[in-house]
Design a protein around this nucleic acid. Structure first.
Lengths: 225, 225
DNA sequence: TGAACTTGACGTCTGCCGGACACTAACCCT
DNA sequence: AGGGTTAGTGTCCGGCAGACGTCAAGTTCA
């Protein structure tokens, strides 16, 4: 295929990705936020993100930004584009279109620190975040909506947990994401009826009766849109 | 807010919109396709679309392209961004990122003709389209999926019909979009139970028993994602 | 060592919703 | 008047979600 020139009417814009990355810590849903080190919005909290480089795929850019802006050790268990924010005035530097991504990081992704141009990175409450730069509050809100949709639909909750987990732990993930309480018995019924969880040995959690450990069945895959 | 320069690492890419526009004709779901008049893919069928202009919002660009590439007289009844296609090799002219939109055009949007750089525009089968340029087949497939989702979820089916319509007509819309047959009695039960349809006078359709005409209730709004 | 505490595991009933299924009603045409 | 065509209607059944309280199996601490 011959390489053709871009036609003159092809508007050039800045292309960026932003990532709403979620993880569970202490029974709460957290989002990964960075503190900006540059203008505009210096010292404000923001979603990690940045410009796509030439020849770089969108999801690659998202992964790279995650790794350089924040020091996360683990690969995301799920990464999905969910909306594109392109409003004219959304960034004071000019026309910048951002393809927003939703990422799920597995359990154990604890220590993060700022890298690149950021002052720092932290896991902060996903449902009640601090004031965010640009239109990042809107992005985060939409990411949460999408996460909640995916939860019921595909089985994203499992991606938040280690390979083996207990049912009460799984329920905590659901409750943290949906931000409401669920009935214990109905939850077990529903989840076990799906037949994607297989039991193994036992385990004791500090106090109380030990819970059965489960592992996800091999064949289970996350459904696309 | 001071206007700041784009940082040097801000990759410039071509920003485009493509539109998968749907309408019903003769009980079949059709998509609006244009025949390209320029390289690449000259004379091939493609989705209407083009470059976003400076200072133009994404949805405005989608509307403009619909109007200039094809001569549709009516405003879309629904317009929604649903996915962004940015794969590096998707366009031989260079890095072009396209924000794909789903549009629903109302009944009566019949005559279309090519405008701008296109040789022509036609309504063609949405489920079995001809071979399409670029990655437009993938875009169309995803648009159909989204349309099917929205159908059950919001009430997009009503947007395909004139203000007043019969239940069998509405059922045809559902069947055309889902590409499968539905049971008459269950369909009526479901739809009427939602309480968003209000009856009015009668009507005779060429042959057979006349059907009740309905109108949508005032307060009904289409839900967002 | 045993009593108190903590947390896990379990089943029934009820209402709603979706799917299968066949006949009568109203109008047109000839 | 009769045949053709399409609109309109109700029941039964199975599955799913939600409400609800008690017993079981450990740990902790006096």
């Amino acid at each position: 295929m011959t390489r053709l020139a871009l036609p003159p009417q092809a508007t050039q814009v800045g292309l960026a990705v932003d990532i709403a990355a979620f993880a569970m810590h202490g029974g709460e849903l957290h989002a990964l936020l960075v503190q900006r080190g540059q203008l505009p919005h210096a010292r404000d909290w923001a979603l990690p993100g940045g410009f796509v480089q030439p020849g770089e795929e969108l999801h690659e850019a998202a992964l790279r930004e995650l790794r350089t802006e924040t020091t996360v050790q683990l690969e995301p268990r799920h990464l999905e584009q969910f909306y594109t924010f392109g409003e004219v005035g959304r960034d004071p530097r000019g026309r910048i279109v951002s393809v927003a991504h939703l990422a799920v990081l597995p359990h154990g992704t604890v220590s993060v620190s700022g890298g690149g141009h950021t002052l720092g990175a932290e896991w902060l409450s996903a449902h009640r975040p601090p004031r965010l730069a640009f239109d990042h509050q809107a992005i985060l809100t939409r990411a949460l909506l999408r996460l909640q949709l995916r939860l019921e639909y595909a089985n994203l909750a499992l991606e938040f947990l280690p390979d083996t987990f207990t049912l009460p732990e799984l329920q905590t993930v659901y409750e943290a994401i949906l931000d409401r309480h669920l009935d214990k018995r109905n939850f077990r019924k529903r989840l076990l009826a799906q037949g994607i969880l297989i039991p193994s040995g036992e385990r004791r959690s500090g106090v109380g009766r030990p819970a059965q450990l489960y592992r996800r069945a091999k064949n289970v895959r996350v459904a696309a849109l």
